[in-house]
Design a protein around this nucleic acid. Sequence first.
DNA 1: AAGTTGTTAACTGTCGACAGTTGGCAGAAT
DNA 2: ATTCTGCCAACTGTCGACAGTTAACAACTT
Lengths: 213, 213
Amino acid sequence: MSVDLVHTGLAGQTVAVLRELVLTGEIAAGERVNEVGLAQRLGISRGPLREAIRHLASEGLLVLTPNRGAHVPVADNTGVHALFELRSALECAAARLAAARRTDADLTRMREVSAASRAAFTTGEFPYRLDLAFHGALLEAARSPLVAEQVRLAQQRVVLLRAAKELTFSHEQASIDEHDVLIEAIGDQDADRAAAVMATHLDRVRDQLLTTG
Amino acid sequence: MSVDLVHTGLAGQTVAVLRELVLTGEIAAGERVNEVGLAQRLGISRGPLREAIRHLASEGLLVLTPNRGAHVPVADNTGVHALFELRSALECAAARLAAARRTDADLTRMREVSAASRAAFTTGEFPYRLDLAFHGALLEAARSPLVAEQVRLAQQRVVLLRAAKELTFSHEQASIDEHDVLIEAIGDQDADRAAAVMATHLDRVRDQLLTTG
DNA sequence: AAGTTGTTAACTGTCGACAGTTGGCAGAAT
DNA sequence: ATTCTGCCAACTGTCGACAGTTAACAACTT
């Protein structure tokens, strides 16, 4: 809830700053967060920082231990499987909704992102930003704000996993191809096929993350 | 994250107390939450109360407005549809997982809850507690802790909707019947059928909630 | 009378200080 | 050498007070 709107006030800003610190791996996996130290470093009081920490914890980016504070979670293989079960549940449903509700403009947008991905790939780059852009375009087509919000939270936790494994996004042809198959299924308004393609896509991404680490 | 474990400390306890106040409708829909007043009423300081408020907000049980504090959300029909899209996404996936992973013990447990529901129904009662127990048993069978957690959060928001509409749970034969069909599909390890049954079940519950209010 | 502006009270946002708990470390006993 | 015990430092949990903002009300203008 209200992830973008509450950039008001010190607590809201601190959420953004701390999120970046965690996602970039500047605060490594397993590392504890010292309240007084970080508060001084950010030039703020402990109050807003605590609220920011609790917020990030509710997103799964931090883990709270009573009287021991917060630390960045360290995910084992079991945790990765659990996270991708959640992401798959949400994003397959989003693919279904997108297939049912997409407009021609949505399709155009998704094709644009896919084309940009291919163009970037030929130059040897396939930035994670473009991958997120594609999934974001799909979420827009699904027109389900709550599902979209939860998908973004799950994706964020995957980003954290990549940071923990010190992985820059692997440049994969397979992902772009699967995106295009997804576009096709959504274009045909074939919800079942879209969900199935999404499921296999995410399974492959998960396995690649597991084997690479 | 950590919804059950952080009952330590005043903030954790306050989360539980405040959650009850919201879910029972003691704090009505649309009503604002006064920090100083509620803090005095609970005999605590504003710090822990603020953290509790932020926590409930992250669960969707409260809405934060910059410099205006928190209030219980008022859901219109659009909001109800959006919420049930999320719940359906999660719980259909849970049904799929349950069909794939259920043990005989899981089946037995679900049948027990269903039998208890029927017994209660003959006496004119069908407590919401038993409905939650059934869905809880299904979640256990799914063996996906993150999905289960999100399902419970979504269910909780539905409870809030019922409280807002001052609805006691309607005694519905249809729900119990649908539960049994779900058990059958899960027993047959038919994931597609389980998901389909769950989807129609939730659609019916949603429509009933919309028409009754 | 309607609209506008100045004022004010109530509330949230933030801070610094104090209290309580935890885990580690040093030292004694076996 | 090892284990147990008592201390201690560092940290989190909590509190009360101050600062900043908002929305409503009153007075004034047109």
